[in-house]
Amino acid sequence: MSVNQYRSVGSRIFDAINIAALVGLGLITLLPLLYVLAGSFASESEISSRTFFLWPEKFVTSTYEYIFATDVFIRALLTTIVVTLVGTVIQLALTLTMAYPLAKRYLPGRALVLNLVIFTVVFSGGIIPTYLVVRDLGLLNSYWALILPLAINPFYLIIVKSFFQELPEALEEAARIDGCTEMGVFWKIVLPLSKPIIATFSLFYAVGIWNDYMSPLLYIDDSSKWTLQVLVRQLTGADAQNALSAMETVFFPTQGLKFAVVVIATLPILCFYPFLQKHFVKGVLIGSVKE
């Protein structure tokens, strides 16, 4: 690769500004998390008395001791990991298989199905009607209730579909001439070419399930089956509705505890991304395809 183009003065100034801006961006996103991390190890009076800090004066681990005093958190964490993994695989499978035919402009009936899908981006039946469907399928109190109702995100489906449309048609044609069935083309040609998009949406789906607290709350009565986010909501509590009962001083989760819970609920899923990053290397395969 020629590097000459980067040597000009304008180019260097651009690089300098670009690097500074992105580092700045990285910092403003990192600092709050560091504050939350520091706060989770700080005493309650320190959190009350210092506006912002990145290192606690006195190192306290009582919040984490409290959280891990029982096996509830560990169990919820394991449950969540399993549900997230299984759910992501199912969601990806359904999304990819549905997006592929929809990317074929010549497929009769495609427009109808696409219209049906787009309609659901805009309209939804609401919480109670969906709950009734889940109940009638006998999924209440089952982990499937956390996966199946969210199995395809229409938004993601359409994006994946449009990615498939951008794939070079010539390659698929070539495979067909070589005797590949549509299944074969999908499996052997399309999927390997779609690694970046698969990586992206496995992350999006995984994070979606991971962060979902409404489904377990509505569909799971048995508290021993609760996932991490229910416990998180439980302990952080200070959401919109709850603030109304500020006068009802029953159990006030301490700030430190809230921070610790955020740390525990965020770190595992944060570690997911770096593993996916390698699939974002420019032009993984497509670069080798001649259009």
Partner: peptide, 13 residues
């Protein structure tokens, strides 16, 4: 999926 989890609940509209 769309019929069961998206369109059946739309009766709720």
């Amino acid at each position: 999926y769309f019929l069961v989890f998206k369109y059946v609940p739309m009766r709720g509209l």
